[in-house]
């Protein structure tokens, strides 16, 4: 990379409108990725804010390949990793229930199911959790996940399988407890 292209990449200026569109499109999936990875509404909100600040700073460099939105998810994954490092122990995450307004009676069962699945996800090792959330919740293809998570296709495939197997075991042991 030349010095000139480095300087050019620092210029953002007029792109704010286009950037707002990017925010409008990706704010929700990025937040939900971080919510299911971290299990904490507060952390997910803070991290989402952080992701878009970083994305804004790096926007000049990435906007040219706008079809490649995976860079945004890569920032989210890296932010989550940094967050775990800052927090110290990433394995002691508990699921925090989102404050989703009043609960109508019919929704109780649905909410219970969400709580069960979301907390089971948090019991997975983080690399498996990441691949399962990216694929099964956000609908990314294996190839897209290789770009977001920075792992090979074979790794995506096996982590997804082992993640699903682990989830199945956790969920069936929890339903047996009742």
């Amino acid at each position: 990379m030349s010095l000139i292209s480095l300087i050019a990449s620092q210029k953002i200026g007029d792109d704010e409108v286009a950037f707002q569109e990017l925010v409008a499109t990706y704010r929700r999936p990025i937040y939900n990725l971080l919510l299911r990875l971290s299990g904490s509404v507060q952390d997910a909100e803070d991290l989402t804010q952080e992701v878009f600040l970083k994305a804004f700073a790096a926007y000049g460099r990435f906007r040219k390949d706008s079809s490649c939105y995976t860079w945004l998810y890569r920032i989210a994954v890296n932010s989550f990793r940094d967050h775990l490092r800052r927090k110290g122990d990433g394995h002691l995450l508990l699921y925090e229930e989102p404050q989703g307004g009043d609960c109508v009676e019919g929704q109780l069962e649905q909410k219970d199911l969400e709580l069960t699945v979301a907390s089971a996800l948090l019991a997975l090792p983080i690399p498996q959790r990441l691949v399962v959330v990216l694929h099964d919740l956000l609908g990314f293809s294996y190839k897209e996940i290789t770009q977001i998570a920075g792992v090979s296709l074979g790794t995506v495939k096996s982590r997804l399988f082992y993640g699903r197997e682990a989830l199945r075991k956790i969920l069936s042991s929890r339903s047996a407890e009742r």
Binding site: R28, L35, R36, E45, V117, L137, R164, R168
Partner: peptide
């Protein structure tokens, strides 16, 4: 079995995101 687990994760609701201030 695998399909059932996949569906359970897919059914998790997508929560509304916070406002982004930039």
């Amino acid at each position: 079995e695998l399909e059932q687990v996949k569906k359970l994760v897919a059914q998790l609701p997508h929560r509304p995101a916070p406002e982004i201030r930039i």
